[in-house]
Protein backbone atom coordinates (compact mmCIF):
# COMPACT_ATOMS: atom_id res chain seq x y z
CA UNK A 1 0.00 0.00 0.00
CA UNK A 2 1.02 3.57 -0.60
CA UNK A 3 0.69 5.56 2.57
CA UNK A 4 0.81 9.27 3.35
CA UNK A 5 1.86 10.04 6.91
CA UNK A 6 0.66 13.28 8.49
CA UNK A 7 2.57 13.79 11.71
CA UNK A 8 4.50 16.84 12.92
CA UNK A 9 6.57 14.99 15.52
CA UNK A 10 9.63 13.78 13.65
CA UNK A 11 10.29 10.90 16.05
CA UNK A 12 6.80 9.54 15.66
CA UNK A 13 6.73 10.12 11.90
CA UNK A 14 9.99 8.22 11.48
CA UNK A 15 8.83 5.43 13.76
CA UNK A 16 5.62 5.08 11.82
CA UNK A 17 7.48 5.08 8.50
CA UNK A 18 9.87 2.43 9.78
CA UNK A 19 6.97 0.26 10.92
CA UNK A 20 5.08 0.63 7.64
CA UNK A 21 8.16 -0.06 5.50
CA UNK A 22 8.98 -3.09 7.61
CA UNK A 23 5.49 -4.37 6.90
CA UNK A 24 6.11 -3.90 3.22
CA UNK A 25 4.19 -0.69 2.61
CA UNK A 26 5.40 2.32 0.70
CA UNK A 27 5.47 5.73 2.43
CA UNK A 28 4.64 8.09 -0.42
CA UNK A 29 5.02 11.28 1.58
CA UNK A 30 5.23 12.67 5.09
CA UNK A 31 3.33 15.88 5.77
CA UNK A 32 3.54 17.93 8.96
CA UNK A 33 0.69 20.40 8.47
CA UNK A 34 -2.92 20.29 7.33
CA UNK A 35 -2.27 22.12 4.02
CA UNK A 36 0.67 19.83 3.29
CA UNK A 37 -1.65 16.89 3.99
CA UNK A 38 -4.20 18.15 1.46
CA UNK A 39 -1.45 18.71 -1.10
CA UNK A 40 0.06 15.27 -0.52
CA UNK A 41 -3.32 13.60 -1.03
CA UNK A 42 -3.81 15.54 -4.28
CA UNK A 43 -0.38 14.61 -5.46
CA UNK A 44 -0.03 10.96 -4.45
CA UNK A 45 -3.60 9.70 -4.13
CA UNK A 46 -2.43 7.24 -1.45
CA UNK A 47 -4.23 4.02 -0.55
CA UNK A 48 -4.50 5.40 2.96
CA UNK A 49 -3.48 8.45 4.95
CA UNK A 50 -2.41 8.12 8.57
CA UNK A 51 -3.15 11.43 10.33
CA UNK A 52 -2.26 12.86 13.72
CA UNK A 53 -4.99 14.95 15.40
CA UNK A 54 -2.79 17.74 16.71
CA UNK A 55 -0.88 19.62 14.06
CA UNK A 56 0.73 23.03 13.79
CA UNK A 57 0.03 25.88 14.15
CA UNK A 58 -2.39 25.61 17.09
CA UNK A 59 -1.94 21.92 17.97
CA UNK A 60 -5.62 21.38 18.58
CA UNK A 61 -7.84 19.34 16.30
CA UNK A 62 -6.37 20.36 12.92
CA UNK A 63 -5.94 16.70 11.96
CA UNK A 64 -9.63 15.94 12.41
CA UNK A 65 -10.67 19.03 10.50
CA UNK A 66 -8.19 18.31 7.72
CA UNK A 67 -9.39 14.70 7.49
CA UNK A 68 -12.97 15.90 7.12
CA UNK A 69 -11.86 18.39 4.47
CA UNK A 70 -9.98 15.72 2.52
CA UNK A 71 -13.02 13.48 2.66
CA UNK A 72 -15.18 16.31 1.37
CA UNK A 73 -12.91 16.64 -1.65
CA UNK A 74 -12.23 12.92 -2.07
CA UNK A 75 -15.10 11.00 -0.51
CA UNK A 76 -13.44 7.63 -1.07
CA UNK A 77 -10.04 8.52 0.40
CA UNK A 78 -9.37 6.14 3.33
CA UNK A 79 -8.06 7.93 6.40
CA UNK A 80 -6.83 6.56 9.69
CA UNK A 81 -6.70 9.19 12.42
CA UNK A 82 -4.26 8.58 15.25
CA UNK A 83 -4.26 10.44 18.54
CA UNK A 84 -2.81 10.40 22.02
CA UNK A 85 -6.35 10.47 23.34
CA UNK A 86 -9.71 9.68 21.84
CA UNK A 87 -12.91 11.68 22.03
CA UNK A 88 -16.26 10.28 21.09
CA UNK A 89 -17.08 13.71 19.65
CA UNK A 90 -14.31 13.41 17.07
CA UNK A 91 -15.39 9.87 16.18
CA UNK A 92 -18.90 11.13 15.55
CA UNK A 93 -17.59 13.95 13.37
CA UNK A 94 -15.35 11.63 11.36
CA UNK A 95 -18.17 9.17 10.76
CA UNK A 96 -20.76 11.85 10.08
CA UNK A 97 -20.62 11.75 6.30
CA UNK A 98 -21.38 8.06 6.34
CA UNK A 99 -18.90 6.58 3.87
CA UNK A 100 -16.53 3.82 4.87
CA UNK A 101 -12.75 3.93 5.00
CA UNK A 102 -12.44 5.76 8.31
CA UNK A 103 -10.35 4.78 11.28
CA UNK A 104 -9.83 6.47 14.62
CA UNK A 105 -7.30 4.86 16.95
CA UNK A 106 -5.14 5.68 19.91
CA UNK A 107 -1.47 5.94 19.06
CA UNK A 108 -0.90 3.22 21.66
CA UNK A 109 -2.42 0.69 19.28
CA UNK A 110 0.56 1.02 16.98
CA UNK A 111 2.62 -1.05 19.40
CA UNK A 112 0.56 -4.12 18.58
CA UNK A 113 1.89 -4.12 15.11
CA UNK A 114 -0.17 -6.89 13.59
CA UNK A 115 -3.43 -5.48 14.94
CA UNK A 116 -2.46 -2.03 13.73
CA UNK A 117 -1.63 -3.31 10.28
CA UNK A 118 -4.94 -5.19 10.23
CA UNK A 119 -6.81 -2.02 11.07
CA UNK A 120 -4.86 -0.17 8.40
CA UNK A 121 -5.81 -2.76 5.78
CA UNK A 122 -9.42 -2.74 6.92
CA UNK A 123 -9.74 1.02 6.57
CA UNK A 124 -7.89 1.03 3.22
CA UNK A 125 -10.44 -1.52 2.02
CA UNK A 126 -13.32 0.80 2.94
CA UNK A 127 -14.00 -0.62 6.38
CA UNK A 128 -13.95 0.98 9.80
CA UNK A 129 -11.56 0.87 12.73
CA UNK A 130 -12.83 2.46 15.91
CA UNK A 131 -10.71 2.46 19.01
CA UNK A 132 -12.03 0.31 21.84
CA UNK A 133 -11.80 3.43 24.05
CA UNK A 134 -14.35 5.22 21.89
CA UNK A 135 -16.61 2.20 22.07
CA UNK A 136 -16.11 2.08 25.82
CA UNK A 137 -17.13 5.73 26.06
CA UNK A 138 -20.24 4.94 24.06
CA UNK A 139 -21.07 1.83 26.05
CA UNK A 140 -20.74 3.49 29.45
CA UNK A 141 -23.09 6.17 28.28
CA UNK A 142 -26.43 4.59 28.90
CA UNK A 143 -29.35 4.72 31.19
CA UNK A 144 -30.41 2.24 33.81
CA UNK A 145 -33.07 0.50 31.75
CA UNK A 146 -31.10 0.51 28.53
CA UNK A 147 -31.71 -2.41 26.10
CA UNK A 148 -27.93 -2.96 26.03
CA UNK A 149 -28.32 -4.31 29.56
CA UNK A 150 -30.39 -7.19 28.19
CA UNK A 151 -27.35 -8.47 26.29
CA UNK A 152 -25.40 -11.37 27.69
CA UNK A 153 -21.77 -10.63 28.61
CA UNK A 154 -20.63 -12.45 25.47
CA UNK A 155 -23.05 -10.47 23.29
CA UNK A 156 -21.81 -7.30 24.96
CA UNK A 157 -18.25 -8.21 23.93
CA UNK A 158 -19.35 -8.97 20.40
CA UNK A 159 -21.23 -5.67 20.19
CA UNK A 160 -18.08 -3.80 21.22
CA UNK A 161 -15.98 -5.53 18.59
CA UNK A 162 -18.65 -4.95 15.96
CA UNK A 163 -18.62 -1.27 16.79
CA UNK A 164 -14.85 -1.22 16.40
CA UNK A 165 -15.40 -2.35 12.83
CA UNK A 166 -14.37 -5.98 13.12
CA UNK A 167 -15.72 -8.60 10.80
CA UNK A 168 -17.36 -11.77 12.06
CA UNK A 169 -14.21 -13.68 11.19
CA UNK A 170 -12.09 -11.26 13.21
CA UNK A 171 -14.44 -11.46 16.16
CA UNK A 172 -14.43 -15.25 16.04
CA UNK A 173 -10.62 -15.24 16.08
CA UNK A 174 -10.40 -12.73 18.94
CA UNK A 175 -12.95 -14.50 21.12
CA UNK A 176 -11.73 -17.96 20.06
CA UNK A 177 -15.16 -19.14 19.06
CA UNK A 178 -16.48 -20.32 15.72
CA UNK A 179 -17.69 -17.86 13.14
CA UNK A 180 -21.08 -19.57 13.29
CA UNK A 181 -21.32 -18.73 16.99
CA UNK A 182 -20.45 -15.10 16.27
CA UNK A 183 -23.08 -15.02 13.57
CA UNK A 184 -25.65 -16.21 16.10
CA UNK A 185 -24.59 -13.60 18.67
CA UNK A 186 -24.81 -10.84 16.08
CA UNK A 187 -28.30 -11.97 15.14
CA UNK A 188 -29.36 -11.92 18.80
CA UNK A 189 -27.89 -8.48 19.32
CA UNK A 190 -29.78 -7.04 16.36
CA UNK A 191 -33.01 -8.54 17.60
CA UNK A 192 -32.54 -7.38 21.19
CA UNK A 193 -31.62 -3.84 20.20
CA UNK A 194 -34.31 -3.68 17.54
CA UNK A 195 -31.84 -2.88 14.78
CA UNK A 196 -32.55 -3.78 11.16
CA UNK A 197 -30.43 -6.78 10.18
CA UNK A 198 -27.36 -5.56 8.39
CA UNK A 199 -24.54 -7.22 6.55
CA UNK A 200 -21.06 -7.12 7.96
CA UNK A 201 -18.90 -4.10 7.21
CA UNK A 202 -19.19 -0.39 7.50
CA UNK A 203 -22.97 -0.12 7.42
CA UNK A 204 -23.18 -2.43 10.37
CA UNK A 205 -20.70 -0.31 12.28
CA UNK A 206 -22.63 2.84 11.54
CA UNK A 207 -25.87 1.26 12.63
CA UNK A 208 -24.36 0.15 15.93
CA UNK A 209 -22.52 3.40 16.57
CA UNK A 210 -25.45 5.60 15.77
CA UNK A 211 -27.61 3.42 17.95
CA UNK A 212 -25.17 3.73 20.84
CA UNK A 213 -24.64 7.46 20.50
CA UNK A 214 -28.30 8.26 20.00
CA UNK A 215 -29.58 6.96 23.32
Amino acid sequence: MRVVIVEDNVLLAEGLALLLRTEGHEVAATADTAPAFLAAVEEHRPDIAVVDVRLPPTFRDEGVRAAIEVRRRHPRQPILVLSQYVEQTYATELLAEGGGGIGYLLKDRVSRVSEFVDALARVAAGGTAMDPEVIAQLLTRRRVDHPVDTLSPREHEVLGLMAEGRSNGDIAGLLTVTERAVHKHVGNIFVKLGLPPSDSGHRRVLAVLSYLSKV
Binding site: V53, R60, E87, Q88, T89, T140, R141, R143
Partner: peptide, 19 residues
Protein backbone atom coordinates in the same frame (compact mmCIF):
# COMPACT_ATOMS: atom_id res chain seq x y z
CA UNK B 1 -10.56 18.35 24.59
CA UNK B 2 -10.44 21.66 26.46
CA UNK B 3 -7.19 22.56 24.74
CA UNK B 4 -8.62 21.52 21.38
CA UNK B 5 -12.11 22.91 21.48
CA UNK B 6 -12.29 25.30 24.42
CA UNK B 7 -15.08 25.22 26.97
CA UNK B 8 -17.97 25.02 24.47
CA UNK B 9 -16.53 21.90 22.81
CA UNK B 10 -15.50 20.35 26.11
CA UNK B 11 -18.91 20.89 27.70
CA UNK B 12 -20.58 19.46 24.60
CA UNK B 13 -18.31 16.41 24.86
CA UNK B 14 -19.18 15.98 28.54
CA UNK B 15 -22.86 16.32 27.75
CA UNK B 16 -22.59 13.75 24.95
CA UNK B 17 -20.89 11.32 27.29
CA UNK B 18 -23.47 11.59 30.08
CA UNK B 19 -25.92 8.69 30.34
Amino acid sequence: ILADRGLPGAVAALAARCP
